[in-house]
Design a protein around this nucleic acid. Structure first.
Length: 455
RNA sequence: GCGGCCUUAGCUCAGGUGGUAGAGCGCCAGGUUGUGGUCUUGGAUGUCACGGGUUCGAGUCCCGUAGGUCGCCCCA
């Protein structure tokens, strides 16, 4: 090594091995559950015209003012790597002329997002989000279903323990303006006791004081007015509807009048799934209602609701819960001598054709190939040499218990199924059982299924 | 953007008060030229993150930079 090794760019990370499998597990589970709720998957561009974000996220939010990867391309256009995907989905709805029919539209997405932030565990500059959006539904039932879907995904992953759902309402515009005025009045009266940060927030975004982590601020909050006293009858009815439907979905929640949303486009419902297991990155899934966003993209009034979740954070929870998916175990085909190689390749393809993970080393004697089979944690070794070739058999060795037997070439698949080696065949059996389990659970009237164990 | 802590072999980490590097695991080879995982013998590891400074001498002390990490801000 004479040249210095290159590091990944700050705040980026490679997904390899266990980490990749956890990441994929999160996305697979979310995609599957979302599809059960009737969501279709969209993929929108990773970069957009900068105005897609500057128009939607609000000029004051930190995301827009200092965290966006914005640059001018060779044609002189200002483009931005998406810091989140809700704006892009709304823009796509409008650009594709989907605002006039087939509403509501239910969209699932998964992909990388980019924010120029100080990296920490569970927080990266290129990170990944999954999310769902219901576009064109004004009913609180939509909000409740969106939340139920998110909860269901966490249950499916087996990571719902230690996580609580906190809900709040931000009201409609009149509610929020009245509340905002009342808050400013209250905190201005106690300005001398506010933290320095919160005094800034009092000017910029007084609602944000509500989720300050400062001790003194929190003490002061005990006496602060809550939004509930300022809700219009319509906003109060909406919030009642949300809670009623959450009960019907049997999703447990806690009301937290201090939940606010970071981005400016939210109204009515605001919620977060918060865990106590990830330090300062406690929010694992967050979302709410954004009735005005599609209009800001140049479309008609299209009330909508959705959430986004950080794949890295969900993946950390999987790891902490000991639910890292195991790599599939292969069957190692081992030819002995050059004459057996062609027959071994035929066997290799036969196994793959039957849906088994099969591997054959590119070189090496029997000992080497056995070592390699062991290293890749193969479940079984199939040894094929001149002796076997002459007899029309293959040696099937179970690498877990060391037993082996000669099996006729055409009976290999059946023999592997019978030996009940971990992984390989067991995986297909497990998949079948899982299908039956799901059918059973659908028959039950309890909506949230119990958390599933490692598969 | 602000503050604390950290950075020594592929990995996890030792290296009082400055005297030019070590363990375990892993890796490679042999004991076993058609049998791995166990056992055993031997072997190779390294610009001590990077750049400066102090010193006869720096992994060790000082300054700067980069990366990681924890917290704040913000957010998923």
């Amino acid at each position: 090594m004479s040249t210095p090794a290159l590091q990944p760019a700050r705040g980026t990370h490679d997904l390899i091995g266990d980490e990749f499998r956890r990441h994929q597990q999160v996305i697979d589970a979310a995609r599957h559950i979302a599809s059960l709720y009737g969501f279709e998957e969209w993929a929108t561009p990773v970069f957009e015209d900068t105005r897609v974000f500057s128009r939607s996220l609000g000029d004051t939010s930190d995301v827009v003012t200092k965290e966006m990867y914005t640059f001018t391309d060779r044609g002189g256009e200002s483009v931005t790597l998406r810091p989140e995907n809700t704006a892009g989905v709304c823009r796509a709805l409008v650009s594709n002329g989907l605002t006039q029919s087939n509403l509501p539209r239910k969209v699932f997405y998964a992909g990388p997002m980019f924010r120029y932030e100080r990296p920490q565990k569970g927080r990266y500059r290129q990170f990944h989000q999954i999310g769902i959006e219901v576009l064109g539904a004004a009913e609180p039932l939509a909000d409740a279903e969106v939340i139920a879907c998110g909860w269901h995904i966490q249950q499916e992953l087996g990571i719902s323990e230690g996580t609580v759902l906190e809900v709040n309402t931000l009201g409609d515009r009149p509610s929020r303006e009245a509340y905002r005025a009342a808050l400013v009045e209250y905190f201005t009266a106690h300005k001398d006791r506010l933290s320095e940060d919160s005094r800034m927030r009092l000017e910029k975004n007084p609602l944000r004081i509500l989720d300050s982590k400062d001790r003194n601020d929190q003490a002061l909050m005990a006496g602060a007015p809550t939004i509930h006293q300022y809700l219009t009858p319509e906003a109060a009815a909406f919030y009642d509807g949300l809670r009623r439907h959450l009960d019907a979905f049997k999703v447990p929640y806690r009301e937290n009048p201090r939940i606010v949303r970071g981005l400016d486009y939210y109204n009515h419902t605001a919620f977060e799934f918060v865990t106590d297991r990830l330090g300062a990155q406690g929010t694992v899934m967050g979302g709410g209602r954004y009735d005005g966003l599609v209009e800001q993209m140049g479309g008609p009034n299209t009330p909508s609701v959705g959430w986004a979740a950080g794949v890295e954070r969900l993946s950390l929870l999987l790891e902490a819960a000991g639910l890292t998916p195991a790599a599939p175990r292969a069957v190692a085909v081992i030819p002995v001598g050059e004459a057996a190689e062609a027959a071994a390749i035929s066997l290799l393809q036969l196994l793959r054709g039957a849906g088994l993970v099969a591997e054959m080393a590119y070189r090496g004697n029997l000992k080497r190939r056995m070592e390699r089979a062991n290293r890749i944690k193969a479940a079984a070794a199939l040894i094929l040499g001149d002796d076997e070739l002459a007899k029309g058999v293959v040696v099937v060795r179970n690498l877990d218990d060391g037993t082996q037997a000669e099996v006729p070439l055409d009976g290999v698949i059946a023999a592997l199924a019978e030996t009940e080696v971990d992984g390989a065949m067991e995986a297909t059996l497990a998949a079948q059982m899982e299908g039956e389990l799901e059918a059973m659970m659908e028959a039950e009237d309890e909506a949230p299924p119990p958390p599933r164990k490692r598969r």
